[in-house]
Design a protein around this nucleic acid. Structure first.
Lengths: 147, 147
DNA sequence: TTTCATGTAACTTTATTTATTACGTTATTG
DNA sequence: CAATAACGTAATAAATAAAGTTACATGAAA
């Protein structure tokens, strides 16, 4: 399975946008994320539907953050992306006739549900501001190391 | 990506095998799992490498469980299958140059690592015997409901 | 020696994400 | 008001990974 990397992508994009005073174009974002501007538009479009960013066409248009960094959580972003499937492992059949398979599904589903709940709680506890701070910290450390 | 359903599959297979005194053939297992005997051999072969089952060729051959049901955990099975990727969500680039992206990765990786640890702990706490009991319970309930 | 079963390599199909192409729409600027 | 810069989006292709299939070899039992 190819893994869905859109959450990672939009976080990267949003942090870059947060460091700019002007809107950033899909082309700029695509360049820094090493992808295609159309992909950027598609993905950012979902964030726009959730009210997290806005876009403007024409000269000096582009994408802009429409929310306070401290108020946007990773979970909100995950939801804005349509809550994509979290696990690459799953049941063979979703609604099997076989009672044995039903039991297997029940036990696995419970385990996956717990792990997903933990992940989403974790996502809910991290804001864009936290990520920005993480970056600032990382940046300082690199500078120190370089002298 | 297509989701990996082998853990679900082998659990289903093992529980059916556990209810038989004789070895079950790949064809029989394939039939009850609605798949192909070659797929069964491939998957069960991994369990054999882990010492959990044995296979015999020729007349009255097939697959047999080689372990106590109470001593085999879901985690062992997951490991026997090669510890496949758990998440369908992941980082865009694994080792990015961009410091922003490194920060994003670090935070996401930590969240995923926690959730994976929880899942694997959960897997480690469930044995085949537990699953078998779950099935027995479910079977009883169905019978009661039917009168 | 025939039959039944696994072992395995090679290839195809299927599902899903990501990338690309093409063209339309809107806003700014000269 | 024309040229340009930007997004919007549909349609299609490429890339990736799991699962399925075919084909044939190997080994054991009747």
């Amino acid at each position: 399975m190819k893994r869905d990397s859109r959450l990672s992508s939009v976080l990267h994009a949003l942090l870059h946008m947060a460091e700019q005073d002007r809107p950033m174009t899909s082309d700029e974002l695509a360049a820094c994320m090493k992808t295609n501007p159309v992909v950027v538009r598609r993905t950012m479009g979902l964030l726009r539907e959730a009210g997290l960013v806005s876009s403007e066409r024409g000269h000096s248009g582009g994408w802009r953050i429409e929310a306070d960094l401290a108020s946007v959580t990773l979970r909100q972003l995950h939801e804005a992306l349509g809550e994509p499937t979290v696990f690459a492992i799953g049941n063979r059949h979703e609604t099997p006739d076989c009672l044995v398979e039903q039991s297997v599904n029940a036990v696995l589903d419970e385990a996956f549900a717990e792990a997903e709940a933990l992940l989403l709680d974790r996502f809910a506890s991290v804001t864009l501001a936290d990520l920005s701070a993480e970056f600032t910290q990382r940046f300082k450390e690199i500078k120190l190391r370089k002298g």
